[in-house]
Design a protein around this nucleic acid. Structure first.
Lengths: 205, 205
DNA sequence: CGAGCTAAAAAGAATGTTCGTTTTTTATTG
DNA sequence: CAATAAAAAACGAACATTCTTTTTAGCTCG
């Protein structure tokens, strides 16, 4: 009885997915053909279909594969390390860039998520995660009173977290499609941005 | 000498492009077949190929067609109408939604722009335009001293405009792919966001 | 007429997937 | 250790679709 380690299979699946993602970043999901992936992976058609039932399954696996980057380490600022929001933004996009390889790939993923509900689940969970990380960071940041007398730091953090998520997304887009995009200026502006004191709206519910 | 007016031809081209865009928003560019477009437009294959040389040409035309929305009217706040940035953000995305039809279409366009340089030209010019509109608005806004003693309103406006563009893009993305997205909270947070006084960085050059 | 259109067919190319075969890997046996 | 059996993995040509585009013939109307 030949024994096949499950790790080997997973490694190969991952390998195929990475090869596919390289192409997806260049040509998008639909324009990347199986023949392309076969060539890029260095395997054969049969081999790939032994690991993935279909192109769709490969796409889905590749998406959830690439979206599992570890952002927790970035968001946890310990005790006395005064990282302003702009700096946090820089660390996030830098970390994402390293994990994803090409940030432009995220545009393809978002576009796919807008069309395919099952891909949306993956992006949703990442979005929620990113929002939570920002929330916990902002709660800390506001609570330190470095800013104005926020009566309720946690409440403010909940309100502003989606905005910072939006700034991350805006960075990714502008970085990908605006030929002259000044990254440092973007970070600097984000650092200088602070919430005003009074937020007298119950927009949440 | 054209027997029928050139306007008629243009109108028909526009009509075809609009029909195609409806499908592009639902299925993306590549997954939309010519047969789909033929059916949606109500015309025949021959008619469409009489107006467009190829599917690629149709896609390009449709993209630059949909990106020509008129945002100037929104950005020009006259004299004494105190519209805070969050409110401006709302007006922008509302206006864009009306012109584009489905905001999710922008995700497809951005993804396409990331892949195809010739599409990028169109998105670039729109991005530059949007940035300029925000710049002129922010210059006004800061100059009124409603905020802190900005020594140079125009300089601040130049710095922060890309950030607001990013917030617009973030809104579009979250609106399209996050199942539970609180639009009003996003606007409210944007209204409460102000730049801090001192921006001691020469990040531009 | 001639320009725009229809409806249908078909050319020609590209796509995703399958399947019989071959190679590689692993465990067992003499 | 060498030989062997068996199963998994990989190959790659072939297949069936699907797609874009072109072509055909016939219709309508200023």
């Amino acid at each position: 009885m030949p024994k096949v380690t499950a790790e080997y299979r997973d490694a190969r699946r991952h390998e195929i997915a990475r090869a596919a993602l390289r192409l997806f970043a260049q040509k998008g999901f639909q324009a990347t053909s199986m023949a392309d992936i076969i060539a890029e992976s260095g395997l054969s058609a049969g081999a790939i279909y032994g690991h993935y039932k279909s192109k769709d399954e490969l796409i889905h696996h590749a998406i959830s594969d690439i979206l599992q980057f570890r952002l927790d380490a970035v968001g946890s600022l310990d005790a006395d390390s005064p990282v302003d929001p702009g700096e946090l933004l820089r660390r996030f996009v830098t970390a994402m860039g390293e994990e994803v390889g090409d940030l432009g790939l995220l545009l393809q993923v978002w576009a796919q998520a807008a069309l395919d509900p099952s891909s949306r689940e993956a992006t949703d969970s990442v979005g929620a995660h990113l929002r939570r990380v920002f929330e916990s960071y902002l709660t800390d940041w506001y609570a330190r009173g470095l800013r104005m007398p926020g009566p309720d730091a946690a409440r403010d953090a909940t309100l502003f977290a989606p905005l910072y998520v939006g700034l991350v997304q805006g960075y990714v887009i502008q970085n990908a499609i605006f030929d002259s995009f000044d990254r440092e200026a973007y970070f600097a502006a984000a650092s200088a941005l602070r919430p005003a004191q009074a937020v007298n709206m119950s927009a949440g519910d």
